[in-house]
Design a binder for these strands. Structure first.
Lengths: 318, 318
DNA sequence: TTGTATGCGTTATCAA
DNA sequence: TTGATAACGCATACAA
């Protein structure tokens, strides 16, 4: 590989001048700058990352810790984080904690040892994070005291419920999947807030109780708001199995606006988090923190938006 | 942060001895080794990654380039690669090329500049890779001359077809999604090979022609082998929409064994690639290549297995 | 404007 | 068995 020394030798200059010419920091004559630039170009010179990191103390690498990259929402975050980081000159090292508390802690220490400048963490549900020796940004939910930025799950829940209310529904199933998840609890709470005194509803956590969609429909339920697209998909296919039509007999909404929403039919309406913006803010926070900003932004929350597709409609009167 | 020098000063030793004691390479008295180890432990000493990388020329970081981490199959690979790499002491930097040819090339150069020791690449379909200056392993398909290791898509296609033949089906729909994908072409070719002279079949590429599952069923088709779980899911929901029962009226099989297979009902039968093994071999290849092995393993292909769930059954006679 | 010198933390060579 | 020292490639304070 070519190095500063290489260029300096070729041109009969000192490494310092070459370094200055390339960085534009020191004072170098235009003539020298030009020669250096052209030679660097010829050689395809790229600064050695390790040397720079050693000298400056910054690796320009971030670590991204997440519970399970196989989960489509986390994958979206990975994509967002990677592109936001790239935009400001950082690379990202991933660490899948495989949905395991020890895994999460181990992943963090591994990354720190690799010399990352900061960490973005999507914590495993129910886990508690201990403050680290390096800057970190947490993407979780409003109720997490460590939260840096996240979707506004509560508002998302409200918006879902309000949208269906406007369509004329007045008897709801609110469907949770994992009763330990703060994110899901906030979504459900938002739904309940919007619905209280406005409509009848029943909340069921699928991890605690079997759901029988046929009976629920017989009881008069015309709309299901599921806490994730995956549960929504699950309900949709069960409904199909027992002969219920969507959206004629049942409107269904999911959360997260995953790619599958568009591959199934009817296409699934969903609440979309602004992943790009969440990722951007997480990275911005991290950069500030790395650069030693005296005061950092407070925990922030980004509104979700309703993506209307074919799984929602006004209830058909009978 | 603590350093070798720190430990050396504390103990009145030279850095060299401390380094040797810690690495176990040089000859150091047991007494000194013991003192060094205990002091290092007290200080929580971790070697500085940048310094080590600078000195040794190895960053112990690999780059993983993939078309779209949002796609569930690629996410599975990301997980497999990360854990296989971790197992042999490598970290992995991700680069999502966002399904864009330029993006792919740019991602590769970015990673090289960051000083990765090698690259694992899942190429964008239809793209051609140029050999790089650093070791690389390619995960694609048998027909790619650069392929290092991949699933045996052809055998997977055959196995899918054979399994349904055994169930008694004799009229098939072979469903492709992207006619430019080598992977999909090989899967379809495998199906056709197994089916020729054994059964009737019709091959349709969904990117070229609209599919009307009701009519196809009327024509006598009782089984659909889709080239991916996503297309299978798509067909399943369309079938449900027109009142076809699965698996009574139609058996459906997908490919890749994605997590969604289990969230829908009926649960989807699928052909599973051995992602762990593919990832392991890719990493193994890369390690050999990085360590300068004189001869590297030839391109290899790993058989797929049939995961039987509820979407497949013997056809019901009428 | 340019060059010299030093150090970042580690490994490795060579003397002592 | 241990220690002094150089080198990896770069950035910077300082001298020329």
């Amino acid at each position: 590989m070519s190095s500063l020394k290489q260029i300096a030798n070729d041109l009969g200059l000192s490494v310092a001048s070459v370094s200055n010419a390339l960085s534009g920091k020191g004072r170098v004559s235009p003539a020298v700058t030009k020669r250096v630039l052209s030679r660097a170009n010829e050689l395809g010179y790229k600064p050695n990352a390790a040397a720079r990191a050693l000298k400056t103390g910054r690796s320009h690498i971030l670590g991204f810790v997440l519970p399970d990259i196989t989960h489509p929402l986390f994958a979206k975050f990975a994509q967002g984080i990677e592109s936001a980081a790239d935009a400001v000159g950082y690379g990202v090292l991933i660490a899948d904690s495989r949905d395991d508390g020890n895994g999460q802690a181990a992943a963090i220490t591994r990354l720190v040892q690799r010399g990352v400048d900061g960490l973005v963490i999507v914590p495993r549900r129910g886990s508690t994070l201990t403050a680290q020796s390096i800057p970190m940004a947490v993407i979780n939910s409003q109720s997490d005291p460590m939260n840096t930025v996240s979707a506004n799950h509560f508002q998302g829940g409200m918006l879902a419920a309000e949208t269906l209310l406007k369509l004329g529904h007045n008897h709801f199933l609110l469907l949770g999947a994992d009763s330990l998840s703060d994110v899901q609890k906030e979504r459900i709470a938002g739904m309940q807030r919007a619905l209280s005194d406005q409509a009848k509803y029943k909340t069921i956590w699928a991890d605690k109780m079997k759901i029988d969609i046929a009976t629920l429909h017989d009881e008069g339920i015309t709309a299901v708001i599921a806490v994730s697209d995956l549960s929504a998909l699950n309900i949709m296919s069960s409904a199909h199995q027992v002969g219920l039509k969507i959206p004629e007999d049942l409107s269904v909404v999911g959360f997260d606006d995953l790619p599958i929403c568009k591959v199934i039919s009817p296409q699934l309406s969903s609440l979309a988090p602004d992943v790009q913006e969440i990722a951007r803010q997480a990275i911005e926070f991290l950069c500030l923190s790395i650069d030693g900003a005296e005061q950092l932004p407070k925990s922030n929350v980004i509104n979700m938006s309703f993506i209307s597709r074919d799984s929602t409609a006004s209830p058909t009167r009978k």
